[in-house]
Structures are given as structure tokens and as C-alpha cells.
Amino acid sequence: MRPVIPYVTAALLFGLGVYGVLRRRNAVLVLMAVELMLNSVNLILVTADTTAKAMLPHGGQVFALFVIVLAAAEIGVGLAIVLQLYRMRASVAVDEVPLAERPTDDPAQVPAGVAADAARGER
């Protein structure tokens, strides 16, 4: 087995994930790109498990399992945040999130069209 093949695959997937996180506007697509990055890390860990001789056997695969669990926790909380953002702003575009103003769900501060749209969506 030539370890350079899975290593290069993982590196390219990580680069694709970075590109997707920086390029995409839709928050769900950003989360998908994050999943690509986490999976490339898993591939690195599993491949390292075959190439590196460690004191404890199968450490890389155990860590890959841990990363999968972490990714499941991350996707749960991340999607909760995305859905809450959609409920508040009726949009999941990450470059329209106002970072300067205080987060609020007071509808008086949301632009009228967005608030009416959100109210229609909640019905």
C-alpha cells in the first residue's frame, strides 16, 4: 500500500473544504464544506494508523472515531444555530449576518419586509 495516495487525497479534500467555507454564502453549504474538512482529517488519521508504528495499536482509528463523534455534535449545534438564524432573519446568507448590532429577535428591529416574510414562513 502506498500511503501517498490517501494522504494526497486528504490534502486535496481539505483544500476543497477551505475553499467551500470561504466561498459559499449559504450557511448550510458552509457546514457541508466543514464536513469535507473533518472527513479529510479522518482520512489522515486512518492512514497514519497504517504508516506510523505507535506504542498503542490502532490509535489513529480510535481518534477517527472521536472526530466522527465531535463532528456529529458540531453538526447538531451548527444546524440549530442556522435554523434559529433563518427564523430571525429569513435568510441564511452568512455575509448578511449583522455582527455589529446586538443579537435580538425583537421584530421591531428587523426590517419590515423580512419580518413579514418570517411571520409568513412560521405559519
Binding site: 501517498v4 483544500g15 497504517t50
Partner: peptide
């Protein structure tokens, strides 16, 4: 985004190719 993503991906790939070349290992 293309610059950073491509740089990260190709940079890491070059690093790993340089580290492992065309060597073989036994599957455990």
C-alpha cells in the same frame, strides 16, 4: 477563496508527497 483553498490543498499535498514519496508500507 480559490487562492487560499488551493494554496492549502496543494501545499499540504506537496508536503505529504515530499514526506512519503513512493514508499510502500505493509497494511496492519
Amino acid at each position: 477563496a480559490a487562492l487560499i483553498g488551493g494554496g492549502v490543498g496543494l501545499g499540504l499535498a506537496a508536503l505529504l508527497v515530499d514526506a512519503y514519496r513512493w514508499t510502500t508500507v505493509e497494511l496492519p
